[in-house]
Computed example of a mutant assay.
Amino acid sequence: MTAVAQNNDFDIYATFQQFLQDDQISPPLAAILSLAEAIVKSNAGTMFELVQALNDSAEELKRRSPNPISLNAGCELFIAFVTLFPHESDNFAELKKELEQQGRKYAAEAISFRDKIAELALGFIKDDSVILTHSYSRVVLKALLHAHKTKRISVYVTESRPRGLGLKTYEALTAAGIPCTVVLDSAVAYVMDRVDFVLVGSEAVVESGGLINYVGSNQMAIIAKAANKPFYALAESYKFHRLFPLSQYDLPTHNPNILSFPTPTARSAGQDSASTTAASEASEKSSANKGTSSSPTERAMTQEQIAKNPGVDYTRPDLISLVFSDVGILTPEGVSQYLVGMFAG
Rank of each mutant, 00 (worst) to 15 (best):
I39T: 04
I39L: 12
I39D: 04
I39A: 05
V40W: 12
S42A: 03
S42Y: 05
S42H: 04
N43M: 00
N43V: 02
A44M: 01
A44G: 05
G45M: 02
T46C: 10
M47C: 06
F48K: 15
F48H: 12
E49G: 10
E49M: 00
L50H: 12
V51T: 14
A53V: 03
L54A: 06
L54T: 09
L54M: 10
L54V: 06
L54K: 13
N55Q: 10
N55G: 09
D56G: 04
S57G: 08
A58K: 10
A58W: 11
E59S: 10
E59H: 07
E59K: 14
E60Q: 14
L61G: 06
L61I: 00
K62V: 10
K62I: 10
R63H: 11
R64F: 08
S65L: 01
S65I: 02
S65K: 07
S65H: 13
N67H: 00
N67P: 01
N67E: 00
N67K: 00
P68R: 15
P68E: 04
I69H: 12
I69Y: 13
I69C: 04
I69K: 11
I69D: 06
S70H: 08
S70P: 05
A73F: 06
G74P: 10
G74N: 01
E76F: 14
L77S: 05
L77Q: 14
F78G: 02
I79A: 11
A80I: 00
A80F: 07
A80N: 14
A80H: 15
A80L: 00
F81K: 14
L84W: 13
L84C: 10
F85W: 12
F85T: 11
P86F: 14
H87C: 07
S89L: 00
N91K: 11
N91H: 13
N91A: 02
A93E: 02
A93F: 03
L95K: 02
K97V: 00
K97R: 05
E98T: 06
E98D: 07
L99Q: 05
L99K: 12
L99W: 14
E100C: 13
E100L: 02
Q101F: 03
G103E: 02
K105W: 04
Y106N: 07
Y106P: 04
A107P: 13
A107F: 11
A107C: 12
A107T: 00
I111E: 10
I111S: 09
F113S: 11
F113N: 14
R114T: 07
D115W: 09
D115I: 02
I117E: 02
A118T: 03
A118D: 01
E119A: 13
L120W: 10
A121Y: 08
L122Q: 07
L122F: 12
L122T: 04
L122M: 09
G123I: 05
G123M: 05
F124P: 04
F124N: 13
K126Y: 07
D128V: 02
D128Y: 09
S129K: 15
V130K: 13
V130L: 08
I131C: 05
I131Q: 03
L132T: 01
L132H: 05
L132M: 08
L132I: 01
T133Y: 14
T133R: 13
T133D: 05
H134I: 01
S135R: 15
Y136Q: 06
R138H: 11
R138I: 04
R138Q: 12
V139A: 10
V139H: 14
V139M: 08
V140A: 10
L141S: 02
A143P: 08
L144T: 05
L145Y: 06
L145H: 09
L145F: 07
H148L: 00
H148R: 06
H148I: 00
